[in-house]
C-alpha cells in the first residue's frame, strides 16, 4: 500500500483523498448514530436516577443534572409506616426468582444436554414444543390457576407464583442452554476419556468447567425473566408475598393523594441498578445467550 502511494500519480492521490474523506464522513456518521442510540437508551434511565435523588418539592424540575440531592425518597420507598414494604418485596422477589431459576436449571440442564448432544427421534417436536411453551401467553394459565389456588388456599403463597413462573422460565432455560451446549467442544470429553479419565472425572474436570459459564449465563437470563414478571404476581400474591414489580406498581408516597413520583423512581432505581450492573458485567455472555435460541 505504502509503495503504491509513493509512486502514485497526482490523480491517484486525489482519488485517495476523496476516499479518505468519504471514510472519515462514514465513520463520523457511525459515531453520531451510535451516540443517538446510546442517548435514547440511557436517557430515560438516567432521568429515573436523577429524579430518585431529587427532593420531593422539585419533582418536576427539568434541570438535566443532579440538583436538590437527597436520600429521602429511598427512605420513603422503604418506609413501612407509609405502607411501602420494598425491603420485604425485594426479599420476596429474590426468593421467588431464585427458586424458579434453580428449579428450571435442575430440569433444563438435562433436557438441554439431550437436545444438544444426542440423536433421537422427535427431537424437532420437542424443540418446537419447548419454543412454543416459551411463547405461551401468561393470561391463558392464570385463570384456571387462580381458581385452583383459591380452592386449595394457595393464593398469596410463594409456590402460587413459582409454579406459573416455571411455565415460561423453564422453556427459556432449555433453549438457551441447548444452543450453548451445542457450541461446546465436546470432543474434549472423549479426549479426556482416552487419556484415562473415568466418565465421572471427565465430567467433573472437563465438562463442568466448560459448561459453567453457559449455565451461569442462562441462570442470569432466567433470573431476570422471573424477576421482571408482573401479571402473575399481581393476581396471585397478597400483601405479604408481593414481588417488587407489584410493589412498585402500587406505591404510596409521603403526601397522600399525590402520585409519589420521586419515591417510585427511587424504588425503581433500587430494583434496576443490580440488574443493570449484572448485565453490564456479563454483557457479552448475555447477548449471546439472549440471541442463542433464536438465531444460532
Amino acid at each position: 500500500m505504502s509503495t503504491l502511494t509513493q509512486t502514485s500519480t497526482e490523480h491517484a492521490a486525489a482519488a485517495k483523498n476523496v476516499a479518505l474523506r468519504r471514510n472519515r464522513w462514514a465513520s463520523s456518521r457511525t459515531y453520531i448514530s451510535a451516540a443517538i442510540i446510546v442517548i435514547w437508551c440511557l436517557l430515560p434511565f438516567y432521568w429515573m436516577v436523577v429524579t430518585a435523588f431529587r427532593d420531593v418539592g422539585y419533582t418536576f424540575d427539568p434541570t438535566p443534572f443532579f440538583t436538590h440531592v437527597t436520600l429521602d425518597n429511598f427512605a420513603t420507598a422503604f418506609s413501612s409506616e407509609m405502607g411501602n414494604h420494598l425491603d420485604r418485596a425485594l426479599l420476596n422477589s429474590l426468593f421467588i426468582s431464585g427458586v424458579t431459576t434453580v428449579v428450571a436449571l435442575l430440569f433444563g440442564i438435562f433436557a438441554a444436554y439431550a437436545l444438544a448432544r444426542l440423536n433421537f427421534r422427535g427431537k424437532f417436536l420437542v424443540l418446537g414444543l419447548i419454543l412454543g411453551a416459551s411463547m405461551f401467553p401468561g393470561v391463558a394459565i392464570v385463570t384456571p390457576l387462580f381458581q385452583l389456588f383459591t380452592n386449595i388456599n394457595w393464593v398469596g403463597t410463594y409456590q402460587a407464583m413459582i409454579i406459573p413462573n416455571i411455565s415460561f422460565v423453564l422453556p427459556l432455560t432449555v433453549y438457551t442452554l441447548t444452543s450453548f451446549f451445542r457450541e461446546m467442544p465436546w470432543e474434549l470429553e472423549e479426549a479426556a476419556r482416552i487419556d484415562g479419565c473415568t466418565a465421572g472425572q471427565a465430567f467433573r474436570k472437563v465438562i463442568m468447567p466448560l459448561a459453567a459459564p453457559a449455565v451461569f449465563t442462562t441462570a442470569i437470563l432466567a433470573f431476570i425473566a422471573a424477576w421482571n414478571e408482573y401479571l402473575i404476581a399481581s393476581i396471585l400474591s397478597n400483601d405479604a408475598t408481593q414481588t417488587v414489580t407489584v410493589a412498585i406498581a402500587s406505591f404510596a408516597g409521603s403526601q397522600p393523594h399525590q402520585e409519589p413520583y420521586t419515591a417510585v423512581m427511587a424504588a425503581g432505581t433500587v430494583v434496576t441498578i443490580p440488574l443493570v450492573v449484572l448485565v453490564l458485567i456479563f454483557q457479552r455472555k448475555i447477548v449471546s445467550g439472549l440471541t442463542a435460541g433464536a438465531v444460532k
Binding site: I37, V38, C41, L42, P44, F45, W47, M48, T51, I224, W227, N228, Y230, V244, T245, V246, I248, A249, F251, Y261, V264, M265, G268, V271, T272, L275, V276, L278, V279, L280, Q283, R284, I286, V287, L290
Partner: peptide, 21 residues
C-alpha cells in the same frame, strides 16, 4: 452494546412507572 442492554434489563413494571412519570 452495553447501553442497548439497559432498557432490556429494566423490569417492564418499572419501565411503565418511569414513562408514566
Amino acid at each position: 452494546r452495553a447501553a442497548v442492554l439497559v432498557p432490556w434489563a429494566i423490569p417492564t413494571a418499572v419501565t411503565a412507572k418511569l414513562w408514566f412519570f
